[in-house]
């Protein structure tokens, strides 16, 4: 059986700095996989390469057996990859409904728009209540729901979630991950980046831990939790160096 997403020997980065040295990972059809790692480990960078927002410098990314490198970023939605980006990135001056409609801009999703919208609104009833509100004026948790809902509107086969728990209250994290579990049940494959390992473990079956631009550990959640490699990756030996990297990023 071929993996839905298969990344092998991926190298990527920004101008002078290589962030990802050699990343290999897979997501099988119907699987939920967690991508873990300290601040600045390159989790978001990995997501950006998969969606084509930044170019890979080496290695391969295949989706459903097809090489992605030839597809421009905006075409990757068409084949079934949707990203709910870090920091939500909703369109702030548009209504909740307009944000959702934009989620199904691509042709195949537009054809099934009404049905998908119904499913998304069922998953997040709050979005129906706030339908006419400006997205930028919603609470962080509501914006997160909107960002996930918007990604779902593209009818993806692979949903990429970048830190959906970022800045949310524990209750809201529970709510969001409850929805993620339902999305997984519906058969959509998910690659989820998390700092909140506990939340990630509640939905994922397997995980990868990134450190130093490489996959430092991989395995089932139980294996990762037992080995202590998750903690080690989060509070690694070069803790101060990573903190520095994270600070420079937030300043940019």
């Amino acid at each position: 059986m071929t993996a839905l997403l298969e990344i092998a020997g991926l190298r990527a980065g920004y101008q002078e700095s290589i962030v990802l040295e050699d990343i290999s990972l897979q997501v099988q059809i119907g699987e939920v996989v967690a991508l873990l790692g300290a601040n600045g480990a390159g989790k978001t960078t990995t997501m950006r390469v998969i969606t084509g927002l930044i170019a890979a410098l080496g290695g391969t990314i295949a989706f459903d057996g097809e090489d992605l490198s030839r597809l421009r970023a905006e075409r990757r939605v068409d084949v079934g990859i949707a990203l709910c980006p870090e920091g939500r990135q909703v369109f702030p001056n548009m209504s909740v409904m307009e944000n959702l409609l934009l989620g199904s801009f691509c042709r195949h999703a537009r054809a099934r728009r009404a049905a998908t919208l119904e499913l998304v609104q069922e998953l997040f009833p709050r979005l129906t209540e706030r339908s006419a509100q400006k997205a930028g004026l919603m609470s962080g948790g509501e914006q997160q729901m909107l960002a996930i809902g918007r990604a779902l509107m593209a009818c993806p086969r692979l949903l990429l979630l970048d830190e959906p728990s970022l800045g949310l209250s524990p209750r809201m994290v529970q709510l969001v991950f409850g929805a993620v579990a339902k999305i997984a049940e519906a058969g959509i494959s998910i690659l989820v980046v998390e700092q909140n390992a506990q939340a990630a473990f509640s939905v994922a079956r397997r995980g990868y831990v990134l450190a130093g631009g490489r996959v430092a550990a991989a395995g089932t959640i139980a294996e990762l939790a037992r080995s202590g490699q998750v903690e080690q990756a989060f509070i690694g030996t070069d803790f101060f160096k990573r903190e520095g990297a994270a600070c420079s990023k937030s300043g940019a």
Partner: peptide, 19 residues
């Protein structure tokens, strides 16, 4: 709507499949 999306958040617009 797509053109407004680009004005408000270019990267997010790309993620919507907008050229």
């Amino acid at each position: 709507r797509a053109i407004r999306a680009v004005a408000q958040n270019r990267d997010a617009a790309v993620l919507m499949g907008i050229n």
